[in-house]
Design a binder for these strands. Structure first.
Length: 465
RNA sequence: GACCCCUUCGUCUAUCGGUUAGGACACCAGGUUUUCAUCCUGGAAAGACGGGUUCGAUUCCCGUAGGGGUCGCCA
């Protein structure tokens, strides 16, 4: 082995979604592992923006922001593919001069018609332009042509993919695809090869929707006598119903996960459990698995996106966050400055509530009732006459209590239920409702401790007003 | 339709031909002498199907079925 260079090469024609993040992550992880041995290994980012019609700045932003959020850090400056167009054109010119490519004047309509016909006749013919290549007049044209790769009819290409294994495709199955459009702009198929070569990419790690393209690109490399990089085609993620990722199950902007209260580390951890790395303990960081990570161990079958597992992992990470981290995340990412409130109260509340919150949004919702009393959703009709009598008695008892400690509160509450001969919940539910706006939730003693004696009594009194 | 890839509990996965097929999420039951949740213990749950090779197949090979990807002057 030697040093490696990988790249993540999205086109800015859609938001960065969780499927592409997984691809980026594998590229990043592979380099990170290689760096242990070879310091000059690199993970690069290239934006494939040659389709100006579909490229939009907001998608570019989405890619950058998403990767940054997840700490999938690329090196060097961002490569903008469109800046290399002249080089791509020159390479196409070389291929033309060396008879590795040819000029074609077939119109889109003609080809569509042929394609339709072949499908109808169930013929397995991919190569639609069959006449231009050997037509001298066409080949000496100076304008109004597109350029296609010349692909031999015989033989086959075998790609030894690091994940897929050996895959063979007959040359006759490969279209003499276009590398330069009629307007002389390069297509993806050409640009990707030229840029990967220029950037010195050693391992092309991408979704297996590109596996078929690899054979076309193989011909470009060969025609140019360029070294062929290692191909690594990883399976795509699916939605939880087995279909393609849709908005409902995760094809939205990855940053939405942040907006919905997920931690970057949780997302990364979750993705790593999806056919990339497996262990008994499924909570792990990138760094902890680097030494055991192998491209060849990546599963060949696609995996489905599952929120349940993600939630489980996210809860684990939230539990282990310290309170300052949470407060900072609230402030930076959720427009919520907890430092405006009593520090002591915040600390006590977070200590208890972070153990029961799947997402940071959830945690915020859980903590808010403790901080802001006036927004409590509670209605006098929710509490029965009997409960109100009990509440008043209970209030008088805790009013006299000066040792405001969990054990003490538990004890006096227990005594109260014994003396009144009631089940715990007969006082538990109404007191929880009055103090937090919810009839179910954390233990009464915890609520009283978080709020403190003064606030507790105030809230009870306010309810009776 | 053609080509390529895939197929172990509902989901993510482990298994270097010989295992009571293991773990995790979710689910169910019990416990943690208060609800919800956490946590703990236990439970149910899988080799798509059919052939071969082999003393022995989830594992290797072939076929079938099912799923996915690709077939653009998009990337």
């Amino acid at each position: 082995m030697s040093s490696v260079i990988t790249r993540f090469a999205p086109s800015p024609s859609g938001f960065l979604h969780i499927g592409s993040v997984r691809t980026a992550l594998i590229n990043y992880l592979f380099v990170k592992k290689s760096k242990k041995e070879f310091k000059d290994s690199k993970f690069l980012l290239r934006i494939e923006d040659t389709d100006k019609e579909r490229s939009e700045n907001k998608y570019f932003e989405s890619i950058i922001n998403g990767l940054k959020w997840l700490n999938i850090n690329w090196e060097e400056e961002i490569y903008i593919q469109s800046k290399n167009i002249n080089l791509h054109k020159n390479i196409a010119e070389d291929l033309l001069n060396n008879k590795k490519a040819f000029k074609c004047i077939c119109t889109k309509e003609q080809l569509d018609k042929k394609r339709e016909k072949y499908v109808k006749e169930r013929k397995n013919i991919k190569r639609l332009c069959t006449t231009c290549e050997n037509n001298i007049d066409i080949q000496s044209l100076k304008k109004d042509y597109c350029v296609r790769m010349s692909i031999p009819n015989n033989g086959s290409i075998v790609i030894d993919d690091l994940v897929q294994g050996k895959v063979e495709v007959l040359n006759s199955e490969i279209d003499n695809f276009i590398i330069l459009r009629r307007d002389s702009t390069p297509t993806y198929m050409l640009s990707v090869v030229v840029d990967d070569n220029k950037m010195g990419i050693t391992h092309i790690i991408r979704g297996d929707d590109h596996l078929n393209n690899a054979f076309k690109q193989f011909h470009i490399y060969n025609s140019l006598n360029w070294k062929i990089p290692k191909f690594v085609h990883i399976p795509l993620m699916h939605g939880n119903d087995g279909s393609k990722l849709s908005k409902r199950h995760g094809s939205m902007d990855i940053i939405e996960f942040k907006n919905n209260g997920y931690l970057a580390n949780s997302i990364v951890n979750y993705l790593l459990t999806l056919g990339i790395y497996s262990s008994k303990n499924e909570i792990f960081s990138i760094d902890s698995i680097i030494k055991d990570f192998e491209l060849s161990k990546i599963n060949k079958s696609p995996s489905k996106f599952d929120y349940e597992k993600l939630n489980f992992i996210n809860l684990n990470y939230i539990k282990n966050l310290n309170n300052n981290d949470i407060i900072n995340l609230f402030k930076n990412d959720y427009n919520f400055d907890a430092t405006n409130f009593d520090t002591n109260l915040i600390t006590k509340a977070l200590d208890i509530l972070k153990n029961r919150s799947n997402t940071l949004l959830n945690l915020k919702d859980n903590i808010l009732p403790f901080l802001i009393a006036k927004n409590l959703k509670r209605n006098k009709n929710d509490v029965s006459e009997e409960s109100i009598i009990l509440l008043k008695k209970y209030k008088d008892i805790i009013d006299k209590e000066n040792e405001w400690e969990k054990e003490k509160i538990e004890r006096i509450t227990k005594e109260f239920t014994n003396n009144e001969n009631i089940k715990f919940n007969e006082i538990g539910e109404p007191i929880r409702l009055i103090l937090t706006g919810k009839s179910k939730g954390i233990p009464i003693s915890d609520i009283l401790i978080i709020l403190g004696k003064k606030e507790t009594l105030e809230r009870i009194n306010n309810f009776f007003i």
